[in-house]
Amino acid sequence: MSDDLTSKSFFHLHLVSDSTGETLNAVAKAAVAQFEMVHPIEHIYALVRGPRQLDRVLRQIEASPGIVMFTMVSDKLRRELETRCRELQVPCIAVLDPVMQVLGAYLGTERTEKPGSQHTLDAEYFARIDALNYTIAHDDGQNLDNLEEADIVLVGVSRTSKTPTCMYLAHRGVKAANYPLVPEIPVPHQIEQLSSPLVVGLIASPERLLQIRKQRLLSLKEDAETNYVDLDQIRAEVTAARRLYARHGWPIIDVSRRSIEETAASILNLYTESKAPAV
């Protein structure tokens, strides 16, 4: 075991949800990330909507005591979970309660006991599915002839996270396509003449791209020296990309030290601004 792992403090973290658990998992990860040198051993329980399922959860908590975080709307199940956690002397946190209380007080209405209501099969849900289908069909320069239907088109050299960023955007209901810039291959007119979608140019530092590309080749068990991992060639690619973006006035995002989520958030901000009415 590495020194990094042995120096970390491990603890059990029980995540209990009556829905898919996505919201709870995201909150837990965001919170734990603020504490260095700790590592949670996660126990994830989704779709806990009845006594039998909760009994299984409680047995696991008793066997591996630790922090309990939950999102459940059933008052009966909540009370049973909180009561048992007090008996076991483990912390039990209802992560959405403060938000729900403020919303209820402000709106002057009571919440409904409806698990997973954010996953209702409504128009927004089907819009996300439509966006995902579009994004998959327009990944890596495919189907250029109907790119005007996209909301956002990402352009960038190899390994600037175009595909995962597009998939993240699609999960937010955004039709996102991407086109890879390849040395000595002209950018097609379908890209250069786009008028409806927001086109965003992605770049990264040559040194960062070199590191990522080398890791990519290693994962493919390729060890031949090529221009793909030549630093001077990569610098030339980045310079050419910057010139292309400047010529068209496309906004640029440097992804060198950004996560996919941070890149997507910046792109969505640009998209919102591009759709705002001129003052």
Rank of each mutant, 00 (worst) to 15 (best):
M167V: 14
N143D: 09
H39V: 01
T83Y: 10
I234F: 03
D3S: 13
M167T: 10
T23M: 10
F11K: 09
N146R: 12
S64W: 09
I152H: 04
L154W: 01
G116R: 05
D18N: 09
L96G: 05
Y179L: 02
E87Y: 05
Y245K: 01
P206M: 05
I234T: 03
T165Y: 04
R128A: 08
V153I: 10
V16A: 09
R213T: 03
T109R: 15
N133H: 13
A33R: 12
Y245E: 03
I136G: 03
H39E: 15
I212E: 02
N227W: 00
L47K: 11
D139H: 04
I93Q: 07
L202Q: 04
L54R: 08
T71C: 11
R247Q: 14
H14G: 06
P51Q: 09
N25R: 14
C85H: 04
G156N: 04
F126Q: 03
I67Y: 09
R258F: 04
A265P: 00
A264V: 08
R235Q: 14
Y45V: 02
Q34I: 00
L81G: 04
E262Y: 01
V102N: 05
I67V: 15
T112D: 10
S19H: 02
A177I: 02
R257M: 03
C85D: 01
G21K: 08
H39D: 10
A63R: 13
A137E: 11
L24N: 09
